[in-house]
Design a protein around this nucleic acid. Structure first.
Lengths: 343, 343
DNA sequence: TTGAAAGCGCTACCAA
DNA sequence: TTGGTAGCGCTTTCAA
């Protein structure tokens, strides 16, 4: 591994000129720059990471804390990790993984030893222990998700409330007066921050619109086919003419299986809309209208905010909600008149 | 963030004594050590990561490269990442995530700038491009998985061949003469290194034992319920009295569903054994004998080897195979005599 | 437009 | 048992 001295020598300039040529923080004559670039290429030079951390004020590393509970939905989680890593790399940042059972110990450690410039928090629980830590440490911290107590924190998330309300509005506008929410696992409503938000918003907006709304879960810890079918059956039996799906991939499939086994067609007999799905709903056997959760949107913004905290004008603390987007796929129609008449 | 000078001053010693007291690389008088430790605690001191990298010869960071293809099985993948992180932390190492589409660019980068002490390679393809890179760079690299061309590399993996052969032996010993392999997705046989190894070993050992063996896949890119059931049906129709399952969680469930819909009991009517499962097979509705893939075993060893490459006696290049373990759950029995007679 | 040189905070060698 | 100090390789200020 060549160092800056060798590059300087090879290019016949001083090391400061090499440094400036590479950082662009000072103008460098065109042909000087060329000689330096040639030397860099030739020697395969890459500035030593440790030395940059020490001399500069940046480590070019973000920590990503993720508790990785047994019940986390792995595919969604992976999508967020990937989106974060990609966003970070776009700004020349690397991601350090903090997956300790004690994600907290990791946070304290990297905050204390200056390994990272900022910390990104994934998989946020309503009563997340990392909230308190974030307030104590000096390292800027950005939450991807919204804890209950978020005072003074920087948080980013999809506007799940708006997404859920939008879904209800679409169904109400189509004439539905009784809907069901096929929700997440029971654990998710306790351990995760957004399922309760969706549920509350669906119920609240339904009430506003004079729509009867019921809901059910899709498993205790892991999304499970049987539970999803049972919940679907229950909601249908209770008279729902439309379903809001806020559940895992497999649960979507299970809902469709239950409908199909009852001979119910989408959207003629039953309307569907998926809310907050982070997977590709178009891979399902039936096209479903969707107001998706787009990890890239949240993660890009989170990284952007993390970078801003390092600059001169730090961003205001507060919650940034990402406006939901709606993709119509023809899975919503008016309720069958016979059904409608039945109520 | 306090630095070593402040600690030294507070403890009334020189900075070298502080350094040695913390690293333990030189004996320090008991009460001197106590004063230093008190100062450290009081000031919340933690040695600056950048400075340690620069001055010392270790960064205390391992890179973990993972392509994260769309078709990776997320839960398995997460288990490996977690196991690696935990193993690394046990040795005071952090994990830097390299998930670029160009995991290769990342490898070159961290090798060039000295950010990490070693690189761990996950999700190894038979013709993995990272093999060539690993040979070029100076940073020690450990593969968790076995590429076709592994000459001179350090590789760690479950002995899938032995696991598959063991499974066949168990079935053959029980008297089965016709078995089926419910395999992975079609993509997995191309993009991943171990599915072909399992398949080849099942077929080879079956031939050795005079057992007829057929196999099928469980989806094209993603494990899929329909494909799994169809494959199961095909294998049963072809006369298999026992199935070797080397497939995803959901596919296991789908196999059981197909058996159940045919009224086949395990093990009375059909014997089952799962090979290379990284999930908890005991969560399935039916207990299944298992020769599991234990991420912790591979990752612990990989980390161990990575550490050794940094020491004085570097480990020999070569493939380290982890001996499989077998957990009997009563899902294997002799084939029904009527069935046996039918052949 | 460029160069010289002072650190950044630590490790580890050399002395005492 | 301890202290002094020379770097590690870079960034950035000050001079030219």
């Amino acid at each position: 591994m060549a160092n800056i001295n060798e590059v300087a020598e090879a290019a016949g300039v001083s090391i400061s000129t090499v440094s400036y040529a590479l950082s662009g923080k000072r103008p460098v004559a065109a042909d000087t720059r060329r000689r330096i670039e040639a030397a860099v290429r030739e020697l395969g030079y890459s500035p030593n990471a440790g030395a940059r951390m020490l001399a500069g004020s940046r480590t070019q590393i973000f920590a990503l804390t993720e508790p990785l509970r047994k019940d986390t939905h792995a595919p969604t989680h992976m999508a967020f990790v990937l989106a974060t890593a990609v966003a970070a790399r776009r700004h020349d940042y690397d991601i350090l993984l903090l997956t300790d059972e004690q994600a907290q110990a990791g946070m304290s450690r990297v905050a204390a030893n200056g390994l990272v410039d900022a910390i990104l928090v994934l998989d946020v629980a309503p009563d997340d222990a990392r909230v308190g830590l974030a307030r104590q440490i000096a390292t800027p911290t950005v939450f991807i998700g919204i804890p209950d107590d978020n005072d003074g924190l920087i948080c980013v998330d999809l506007d799940f409330e708006a997404a859920a309300a939008w879904a209800v509005d679409l169904l109400a506008d189509a004439g539905h007066t009784s809907i069901g929410l096929v929700g997440q696992t029971e654990t998710a409503y306790v351990k995760s921050n957004f399922p309760p938000r969706v549920r509350a918003s669906v119920l609240a907006r339904s009430a506003d619109r004079g729509v009867a709304a019921a809901y059910g879960t899709t498993g205790s810890k892991h999304a499970n086919r049987q539970a999803a079918r049972r919940t679907t059956a229950d909601l249908l039996d209770a008279g729902a003419t439309a379903l809001v799906l806020h559940c895992a991939d497999e649960a979507h499939a299970a809902v469709l299986a239950e409908l199909s086994s009852r001979g119910l067609r989408v959207p003629e007999d039953i309307s569907l809309i998926s809310v907050g799905a982070s997977f590709d709903t178009s891979a399902l056997p039936v096209r479903i209208d969707s107001i998706p959760l787009i990890p890239e949107a949240s993660c890009d913004l989170a990284v952007e905010l993390a970078l801003q905290t390092l600059g001169t004008d730090a961003p205001e603390p507060g919650v940034r909600l990402i406006a939901p987007t709606y993709s119509a796929q023809g899975s919503i129609a008016s309720p069958r008149s016979s059904e409608a008449a039945a109520h």
